[in-house]
Amino acid sequence: MPAIRLAALGDSFVEGRGDPGLDGPFHGWVPRLADQLGIPRRGVLNLGVYQATTQDVVDGQLPAVLARKPPMIVVNVGVNDLVSDYDPERFRRNLGTIYSSLRGMDTTVFTASYPDIPKNLAVPDAFRSLLRDRFAEANSVLREITVATGTLCLDLTAMPGWAEARVWAADGIHPNAAGHQLFADQLTEFAARETGLVQPALLVGG
Score class of each variant (00 low, 15 high):
residue 2 P to H: 14
residue 3 A to L: 13
residue 5 R to P: 00
residue 6 L to P: 01
residue 7 A to N: 02
residue 7 A to I: 09
residue 8 A to Y: 02
residue 9 L to W: 14
residue 12 S to W: 10
residue 13 F to C: 11
residue 14 V to M: 08
residue 14 V to A: 09
residue 16 G to Q: 07
residue 16 G to F: 01
residue 17 R to Q: 14
residue 17 R to H: 06
residue 19 D to S: 06
residue 22 L to M: 11
residue 23 D to H: 08
residue 26 F to V: 14
residue 26 F to Q: 08
residue 26 F to E: 09
residue 27 H to S: 13
residue 27 H to P: 00
residue 28 G to H: 02
residue 28 G to E: 11
residue 28 G to M: 05
residue 31 P to M: 10
residue 34 A to N: 05
residue 34 A to V: 02
residue 34 A to R: 04
residue 35 D to N: 13
residue 38 G to A: 11
residue 42 R to C: 08
residue 46 N to I: 04
residue 46 N to V: 09
residue 49 V to C: 06
residue 49 V to I: 15
residue 50 Y to D: 13
residue 50 Y to P: 01
residue 53 T to Y: 03
residue 56 D to M: 03
residue 58 V to G: 03
residue 59 D to H: 09
residue 60 G to H: 07
residue 60 G to A: 04
residue 61 Q to W: 09
residue 61 Q to T: 01
residue 62 L to D: 08
residue 63 P to F: 11
residue 63 P to K: 11
residue 63 P to G: 03
residue 64 A to C: 02
residue 64 A to M: 13
residue 67 A to M: 11
residue 68 R to P: 06
residue 69 K to C: 14
residue 69 K to G: 07
residue 69 K to E: 15
residue 69 K to I: 07
residue 71 P to E: 05
residue 74 V to D: 00
residue 74 V to H: 06
residue 75 V to Q: 03
residue 80 N to Q: 04
residue 86 Y to K: 00
residue 86 Y to G: 00
residue 91 F to H: 07
residue 92 R to N: 05
residue 93 R to C: 01
residue 94 N to P: 03
residue 94 N to Y: 01
residue 95 L to K: 06
residue 95 L to W: 10
residue 95 L to D: 06
residue 95 L to A: 09
residue 95 L to N: 07
residue 96 G to S: 12
residue 96 G to T: 10
residue 98 I to C: 10
residue 99 Y to Q: 10
residue 100 S to T: 12
residue 104 G to F: 05
residue 105 M to H: 12
residue 105 M to A: 13
residue 106 D to S: 15
residue 109 V to K: 00
residue 109 V to F: 01
residue 111 T to R: 08
residue 112 A to S: 13
residue 113 S to C: 03
residue 116 D to C: 02
residue 120 N to T: 10
residue 123 V to Y: 14
residue 123 V to E: 10
residue 125 D to K: 15
residue 126 A to L: 14
residue 137 E to C: 06
residue 140 S to R: 15
residue 141 V to M: 14
residue 144 E to A: 12
residue 144 E to Y: 03
residue 144 E to W: 02
residue 144 E to N: 07
residue 145 I to S: 01
residue 145 I to A: 00
residue 145 I to D: 00
residue 147 V to Q: 13
residue 147 V to L: 13
residue 153 C to Y: 04
residue 154 L to Q: 11
residue 157 T to N: 12
residue 162 W to S: 05
residue 164 E to V: 10
residue 168 W to R: 01
residue 169 A to S: 15
residue 169 A to R: 04
residue 171 D to W: 09
residue 175 P to C: 08
residue 176 N to T: 03
residue 177 A to Y: 02
residue 178 A to D: 15
residue 181 Q to P: 03
residue 181 Q to W: 06
residue 182 L to G: 09
residue 185 D to I: 02
residue 186 Q to W: 02
residue 187 L to A: 09
residue 188 T to I: 03
residue 188 T to S: 12
residue 191 A to T: 06
residue 191 A to K: 01
residue 193 R to D: 06
residue 193 R to C: 04
residue 194 E to I: 00
residue 197 L to A: 14
residue 197 L to T: 07
residue 199 Q to Y: 11
residue 199 Q to M: 12
residue 200 P to F: 05
